[in-house]
Every structure is written in structure tokens, then in C-alpha cells.
Simulated scan of single mutants.
Amino acid sequence: MIKNRAFLKWAGGKYHLIDAIRRHLPDGDLLIEPFIGAGSVFLNTDYPRYLLTDINADLIYLYQLLKDNPERFIDDAKHLFSTETNDADCYYQLRQEFNLSQDPYHRSLLFLYLNRHGYNGLCRYNKSGGFNVPFGRYKKPYFPASELEYFAQKAKQAEFVCCSYEQTFDRVQTGDVVYCDPPYAPLTATASFTSYTSGGFNEGQQLHLAQLAELVSHQRGATVLISNHEIAFTRKIYSAAQLSSLKVRRTISRKGQKRVKVDELLALYPAQPRTDSVAYLVESAKLR
């Protein structure tokens, strides 16, 4: 199967892991992704329907607008990719314009521009919700016209919703397949959780996600696959899952010598026969 690249640059994107991920995902009628990110898994799987969600409203607005009116969006976006706009002063002016704008269409155009012109494809907000990624200083940022067109075509099979992962799990039904790519747990005690929204993603949320995955696999007969760093913490919280590990090259650093391979963990919760036991009903109530 030919692999398709996302139109967004994305730190932690799953393009290079897609073969391993596909091997763990069963067939089904619906694939649900509570952390859609750049959408590499969506773009490289073949399910009849998709439910793609994220807490990042800018991401979901962009995807929905591209689905609804791809020709207009692509035509408008390409004008932001020029010699004049590939300049630090212009970048910071447009970044401020993005942070001040309340118009979803304008923000979506600028989100694509910032993603392709900002440092290493980072998506980062400060505690006030302001996008704060610095200028990337690329010689000629690539305008992903063909990638945008492919995404828009495949998006006809998808529903995009801005909501939390908990709200997404509420919609999981028997036979559904769920792939979760949450902000990763830090490799060291001093590292920070990825803050792709102003709220971040802490250890309690990592644990809660694991609990929900185990719950829906037993109570609702859904399959859940989660990816994360392989560290003692993640092995502990995913202890009820089938675990697979592999090496992944990190590319977040500008310096090549710092692009080292790290351990990646895939935690699979296979669909189990549905149970109406009191224990699971009580646990379900606790987690909501």
C-alpha cells in the first residue's frame, strides 16, 4: 500500500510508523481517532468511515473547512507561500494576526502558513492560548497542494469533531476500532509533556486514557490501540494491554546528531466479549 503524507508538518507524526500501526489495527466499519494530529493514520488506512476528533479547535476547523470547500481553501492558502511571506517580520506579524483573529476561515489559512513556516512543524500554545512557535527560517517552505487535495478527497468519509478524548470515548460502540496518539509521556522526569493545546496533558490524563481503553474493550467490545514512549510509567499504566516495542528516530532537534532512536510502545486492547457485570458498570461510573 502506497503511503500518503499529511499536509501538515507534525512533531511526533506517525508517517514512519504507519506499517507497524496498521499491523495492529483490525478490520472494521469505523476507525475513531481521539487525537487526530496531522492525520497520518487516517490517510493511510482504508476504513469505510472515520470519526476524527481533537481538543485543538484550530486543527478541526482547518480539516472541516478543507472538507467542505477544498478548491477555495487551497487557492487562498497558496498565496501565503511566497518569497515575501517567508520572512521573520512577516511571520511574526501573521502569527500575531492569527492570535487576535476570531474568524475560523482566516485562522485556518494562517494555521497552515504557521505550520509550514514555523520551527520544525511544532504546534504549541502558551498558557493564554496564544500560538508561540518561532520562525523556522526555511529556504523555501513547501506548499502541499497535492497533499491537501488528497486529504480533502478522503475527508468525505470522515466526521470531524472538536472535543476531548473522554467525549470521544463516550461514542465508542461494539466493533469500533480506536487508535490513540496522545501527547507522549516525557522520557525523563525533568521533561515537559507536549503542550499542543494550552492545557497540556498530564500523568493523570495518561492513566485515565489507559483506563478508558481497557474499559471499552471489555464493556463495549471495541479494539483500542495506543502509542506512547516506552518507559516504566507507560508499561505500568498499559499493563492490561498486549505490548509491542520498536525503535523510532526522533527528528525534533535541528542538529542531526541529536536525532537519536528512542523506544516506542504500542499498547493493544483487543475487543472482548461484552459484559454486564456489576464490577464493570461500577468502574464505568467512576471513570465518567
Rank of each mutant, 00 (worst) to 15 (best):
D27N: 13
D27S: 14
D27L: 13
G28T: 03
G28C: 04
G28A: 04
D29Q: 15
D29F: 10
D29A: 14
D29P: 09
L30F: 12
L30P: 05
L31G: 05
L31V: 13
L31E: 07
L31Y: 09
I32P: 03
I32D: 03
E33G: 05
P34E: 14
F35L: 08
F35R: 11
I36S: 07
I36R: 00
I36P: 00
I36N: 01
I36L: 15
G37V: 08
G37Q: 06
G37F: 07
A38R: 09
A38D: 09
A38C: 14
A38L: 08
A38G: 14
G39L: 11
G39T: 10
S40M: 03
V41H: 03
F42T: 02
F42Q: 05
F42G: 02
L43M: 15
L43G: 12
N44F: 04
N44E: 09
N44S: 07
T45G: 05
T45H: 04
T45C: 07
D46I: 00
D46L: 01
Y47N: 02
P48E: 10
P48M: 06
P48S: 03
Y50F: 14
Y50W: 11
Y50N: 05
L51T: 10
L51S: 12
L51M: 15
L51D: 10
L52K: 07
L52I: 11
T53C: 15
T53W: 06
D54G: 07
D54A: 02
D54F: 04
D54E: 05
D54P: 06
I55F: 12
I55M: 12
N56I: 01
N56S: 01
N56R: 00
N56C: 02
A57P: 04
A57S: 14
D58A: 02
D58H: 15
D58G: 01
L59I: 03
L59W: 07
L59H: 04
L59C: 05
